[in-house]
């Protein structure tokens, strides 16, 4: 519903025609007098790692830099564009940290238009202690200054200041390790098994259902002494690894052929969606998972998850 608009917004075609070029973020942090770059893995969901294994978003903060250029910005104005001819178009990054329920805007430090196009450069520091768990970064275009005169063929265009008229890119940063991000609930009961999984009805796991407890939940039952986790503390990594592998196996089996294809190839996946997180999971696997025959998929999952949990545990 949030994506439905009664006015034209930026399309892939428009972005291409106007020569929009969004460079990858550069992420780093500062320790003492030195700045250290963080490595990125993934596209719509990005996992950051620190080669020197010091960085933690909570303790060290995060610095980002990004360049955006539009070779032919004129294509974005007028009846076939997204704002009126005499309006001003702004570009900014909206950040949202769901864990801390915070959101805000990052404005470009430079925004220069020359005959060869428009170039925006962003530089921003999230200080230590400011962000936790997750961070979504959306580059948006918005009406910066409304047009004083709206031409007859521009009546359908948005002309209210501060309103978004298109999203150039959305990236979700994943700061947690595999078992932390997986939706797990502990539920102690003598009437339930050691572990089980509950799924909601999925309408479109590529876009609608998010990889969260409402849609996927692994229940672990501390009533049993074999339970691999109590109060969030892992007691038995091998057991947790086996359970997670079976859970991922069930999740992959639940996808239609089309959803699985989209997941493997990152086709039209909404950040945070079930398929988007699974895509990231596949990227993070050391060796490509083989899906057929199914027993090979399960074995591949067992091997990969065991390795990752062992790394996290180290």
């Amino acid at each position: 519903m949030d994506n439905f608009r009664f006015y034209p917004t930026l399309t892939d075609d428009m972005a291409e025609k106007s020569g929009c070029s969004v460079e990858k973020y550069s992420f780093s942090y500062t320790s003492g007098e030195w700045e250290y770059e963080l490595k990125q893995k993934g596209h719509s969901t990005v996992k950051l790692t620190d080669p020197s294994e010091i960085w933690k978003i909570e303790n060290d903060g995060l610095r980002l830099e990004k360049k955006i250029s539009i070779a032919y910005p004129n294509f974005l104005f007028g009846k076939d564009g997204i704002v009126c001819s005499s309006a001003k178009l702004g570009i900014c990054i909206i950040w949202t940290n769901k864990t801390l329920t915070q959101t805000g805007c990052i404005m470009p430090v430079t925004d220069i238009t020359t005959p060869s196009g428009r170039n925006c450069y962003f530089e921003y520091d999230f200080e230590p202690g400011r962000i936790s768990g997750d961070l979504e970064l959306s580059v948006i275009m918005y009406v910066k200054k409304q047009a004083d005169t709206i031409l007859d063929d521009e009546q359908n265009l948005m002309n209210e200041e501060g309103v978004s008229v298109g999203v150039l890119e959305t990236v979700v940063l994943d700061f947690n390790s595999i078992y932390m991000e997986f939706p797990i609930e502990e539920f102690s009961s003598e009437n339930e098994p050691l572990w089980w999984v509950e799924f909601s009805e999925w309408e479109d796991p590529k876009t609608i259902e998010t990889f969260t407890k409402e849609n996927i939940c692994l229940y672990l039952n501390p009533h049993y002494h074999l339970c691999p986790m109590t109060d969030g503390n892992i007691k038995n990594v091998e057991m947790l690894s086996e359970i997670l592998a079976m859970t991922y196996f069930m999740i992959f089996n639940r996808l239609s052929d089309e959803d699985l294809r989209a997941t493997k190839n990152d086709i039209n996946l909404e950040p945070g969606s079930i398929c988007s997180v699974l895509h990231q999971f596949l990227l993070d696997c050391d060796e490509d998972l083989v899906f057929e025959p199914r027993e090979r998929l399960l074995k591949g999952l067992q091997m990969n998850i065991a390795k990752r949990l062992a790394e996290d545990d180290a």
Binding site: D2, G90, C92, I94, G104, C105, I140, Y142, K144, K145, Q146, E160, E161, G162, V163, S164
Partner: peptide, 16 residues
């Protein structure tokens, strides 16, 4: 706020 980002409007948050 579903559509508008108050900080980006004319006069910023105060005017909004």
């Amino acid at each position: 706020c579903v559509l508008v980002e108050p900080a980006l409007t004319l006069g910023g948050e105060d005017a909004y």
